[in-house]
Design a protein around this nucleic acid. Structure first.
Lengths: 153, 153
DNA sequence: TCATACTTGACTAATTTAGTCGGGTTTCGG
DNA sequence: CCGAAACCCGACTAAATTAGTCAAGTATGA
């Protein structure tokens, strides 16, 4: 799971869509203005989101985008995976080092980390974000967390 | 917490150090050869590790590096923090968007993610890696995990 | 039929990352 | 005391990635 600002923008845009999607399709121009993300860039992002069946488009005047399914069935992980290439893997296939037995050890470590991150992001649904956004505009969120293990540093 | 190959190399190098450090200082040249990491690059990494007090150096012939404290008191998070700039923060301070209330929501999300990652990495000690390396050279590790929550995708 | 809005993909600029280079400085062994 | 072993350090560069633009469409509702 890769994390870049691209993924962040996508989540923000999807959230905007979820929040404003009640009355018909939402235009990218609208999202662009509200979220201050360039239209061209949104187009690029929504192209990917559409191909991954997270949103559906309605063309022509009055058109725009709407969620392809209920916000409760879309996770943050889905969104990020859609826009960031799936370059997951612990980088252990392309490079030189990472050999004989040393390999597998750190390899496993990164793999575990990956699934920890993926697990966290899979646990947060778009509807969670919508809800938090509606009930507590500005405040601590603590999303879905219960026993947020360790968490220090 | 940023994750790059630099951090991975650092962890690998520290592990090598922990494994070979029993009989006096370990030279970077040795690590370089065993782990196939360029000497110059190791020098750069160990400069940082030293400044963060994770290793200590012994100069002159017969010198090298050794851990600054017991492997049980060094975590993977310590190592990664030492070599990768602390550019933690959810990128929410320098950029434009991320405004009014939308801001705080995704902001909190990334912040939580950050601490999840940091928590995971803080939970893995260098000694854990050494142990796993010694007992199960090639196999599934599952480091320190117990109830690795959710974990799918 | 035309303005609105999505669609596509190539292109570019900026940033970040990975890694090198060249010069030190310290200290041991002979 | 001198030379080699080893650390030390900061500037530099090349490659890769990311962020974002541009241009040229296509579909469709009013």
């Amino acid at each position: 799971m890769k994390l870049t600002t691209k993924g962040r923008f996508a989540v923000t845009a999807m959230l905007d869509l979820a929040l404003h999607g009640a009355q018909g399709p939402v235009t990218l121009a609208g999202i662009s203005e509200r979220q201050k993300i360039s239209l061209s860039y949104l187009e690029q992002l929504f192209g990917k989101l559409r191909r991954r069946d997270l949103v559906e488009s309605v063309r022509g005047p009055g058109g725009g985008y709407h969620l392809a399914r209920d916000a409760a069935r879309i996770t943050v992980a889905d969104i990020i995976r859609a826009v960031d290439e799936p370059i997951d893997s612990t980088q252990c296939g392309g490079r030189e080092n990472c050999h004989d037995h040393h390999r597998c050890m750190t390899h496993e470590l990164w793999e575990e980390l990956n699934s920890t991150v993926a697990g966290f992001l899979s646990g947060v649904k778009l509807s969670d974000l919508v809800e938090k956004q509606r009930t507590k505009p500005i405040s601590v969120v603590r999303a879905h967390k219960r026993e947020s293990h360790i968490a220090s540093a």
